[in-house]
């Protein structure tokens, strides 16, 4: 394979990089809200339910992405409903939903031995097998998703800082929280093409955590998150290509490395300030 082959649009490497950067662009701003709103566990619940979505999608003959987004939405609504009772706390509810969804997904999949089903591919992602249709999902769905997020951005930030105060100031009139839940379900559906069901949450929360130190505004943090996520994607794919490591885990490991570097940079600057 020559360099020209590698960089032609048909090349799986170019498709992989394009898919990865697209997902970093979407997951960045959404991931910031996951961190700000402390919803990491909700991200896990959505992604664990995704396996059921994939299986249902295949059984019903629709695109797995539709199945995943649909099941994610069901999970979100189920959670909102269950939160109305106050005896069992949200993290317990999420634990129940998350592991039930994963178990149901695995059971459904076990009945599907007549269909070719790449379980490992769904669990850990296979970015090097991204198709042109996947790219269409990532960029088409991503554009809609980011436009919707931009539309609710301001009230969502206000509600994230403090829900009661924002409501009193009139920010709660639009169904902002429901919209955000739909956007999260869609993001998980799109992002799991790159890193897989078990690692989606990592892609949502590690880049924002690494970006926090460099930001003084919510928008700045979202931008820094996209940059760090993109860097992690390119580093991870390169590592996967050079050393033949699994792509999803390589991207997450690269993101974790960037987080460690940001942490170290923080310790160094804090120490420098301390000496003054």
């Amino acid at each position: 394979m020559t360099v020209i082959d590698l960089l032609s649009f048909d090349s799986f490497v170019v498709r992989a990089v394009a898919a990865g950067l697209g997902v970093a662009l979407i997951a960045g701003p959404l991931g910031c809200f996951v961190v700000w709103r402390r919803m990491a566990y909700f991200g896990d619940t959505l992604s664990h339910a995704a396996l059921t979505g994939v299986a249902l999608g295949i059984l019903l003959g629709v695109d797995p992405t539709v199945g995943i987004a649909g099941i994610g939405l069901v999970m979100g609504l189920l959670l909102l409903g269950l939160q109305q009772q106050r005896r069992i706390s949200t993290d317990t509810l999420l634990g129940i939903l998350s592991h039930t969804a994963l178990s149901v997904g695995l059971i459904v999949v076990s009945f599907m031995d007549t269909v070719r089903f790449d379980l490992m591919g769904y669990l850990f992602g296979d970015i090097l097998a991204v198709t042109t249709l996947d790219l269409a999902w990532i960029y088409g769905g991503g554009a809609v998703l980011l436009a919707a997020l931009a539309a609710i951005w301001r009230p969502l930030i206000a509600l994230t800082v403090d829900q009661d105060t924002a409501m009193v100031e009139g920010a709660g009139r639009l169904p902002v929280r429901l919209t955000f839940m739909i956007l999260m379900a869609l993001t998980v559906a799109i992002a799991m093409k790159v890193v897989g069901i078990l690692l989606v949450t990592a892609l949502l929360i590690i880049p924002p955590a690494a970006a926090r130190r460099f930001a003084t505004s919510p928008e700045g943090m979202a931008a820094a998150t996209v940059l760090i996520g993109g860097t992690a994607v390119i580093s991870g794919i390169s590592a996967s290509f050079i050393w033949d490591t699994p792509s999803g885990p390589s991207i997450v490991a690269a993101a974790a490395l960037l987080f460690a570097l940001s942490l170290a940079a923080g310790l160094v600057t804090d120490a420098a300030h301390g000496r003054k």
Binding site: V35, W36, R154, D164, T165, E169, G220
Partner: peptide, 24 residues
Amino acid sequence: YQSQRLVLDQTLPLSVRRFLTLTH
């Protein structure tokens, strides 16, 4: 309204200017 429970998450960077203009 000034809420009693408004505790800012350290992960959300915000200036005073931005805090004052969150909704308007």
